[in-house]
Design a protein around this nucleic acid. Structure first.
Lengths: 143, 143
DNA sequence: TTACCTGCAAATAGTTTGCAACCCT
DNA sequence: AGGGTTGCAAACTATTTGCAGGTAA
């Protein structure tokens, strides 16, 4: 069952895309998973609900969602494209020891950056968005 | 001719890697190019100097340099691995209209972030490095 | 000399494409 | 009805692997 039917439907309409079972299933998964899946992971997950979806379709849908600003493409260090659903603005924590990536929302920091670039701009460019890529290690508990 | 022979040689020694013509050529290019090439671009460029280098070797070298902290892997939105030589700490400007990526060093900003996270840490993690991923558009000149 | 390194070619994996059939609106 | 959308299979591109031979230290 699709969790966010109405929400997804309006996302699609805003982008001028038709509502299809494949799009519903892919977006529903992206919204629910709260992770940063690559194409194959999305495909595997969606297969459970829409068994006959093809991987080529998943490629096409994810790409078009990214074009329409519904998802963003992410950098990953394994050479595979990853996608991220943008519910709220957030940064990313990259664990250097394994390949985990976690969301890190921080409004306070967003404000600081916004203010900083209000005064000092980057010449020749207009800033659209700023995301932090924070490399982290898990803390060892030695008290 | 290798521009930074001594420098590269010590980089390699610090990482316990033998000095080979292939490694010299690849690193020399990475240092000189000041860009963010993908594997094929490195291969093409290095071919001019070391004609019989194989692409498999380029893959292996870039990967091992990244493991040893000489290069960093980069996120790119085209599904190809890109590498970046780390001369000084810098951030990245991603042009949203084309696929250009530019370096953006900014010590002032590094200080601000460092101070911010001195007070407010991320629980469970130790921060290793912070990079900004700044999405930009070229400014239209309308005065 | 010896352990590390490289090139080759083949295998594997990831992504794109073209088109006929299908299905939202 | 009609144009956007999908699945398929094939093409294409990117990356990894194993191993024999080569080379830096």
């Amino acid at each position: 069952m699709i969790q966010n039917y109405q929400h997804i439907k309006s996302l699609l309409q805003e982008s001028g895309l038709k509502t299809t079972p494949q799009r519903l299933a892919v977006l529903d998964y992206m919204i629910a998973c709260k992770c940063h899946p690559n194409v194959d992971e999305v495909y595997q997950a969606v297969c459970a609900h829409v068994p006959d979806i093809s991987k080529a379709t998943v490629y096409k849908l994810l790409e078009s969602f990214a074009q329409n600003g519904i998802l963003s493409k992410m950098n990953s260090n394994d050479g595979k494209l990853k996608y991220d659903y943008i519910a709220e603005h957030h940064h990313h924590l990259y664990d250097v020891d394994n390949d985990e990536i976690k969301d890190y929302p921080n409004n306070e920091l967003d404000e600081i950056l916004k203010n900083y670039f209000k005064e000092k701009s980057i010449d020749g460019y207009v800033i659209e968005d700023i995301k932090l890529e924070i490399k982290v290690k898990k803390q060892i508990n030695n008290k």
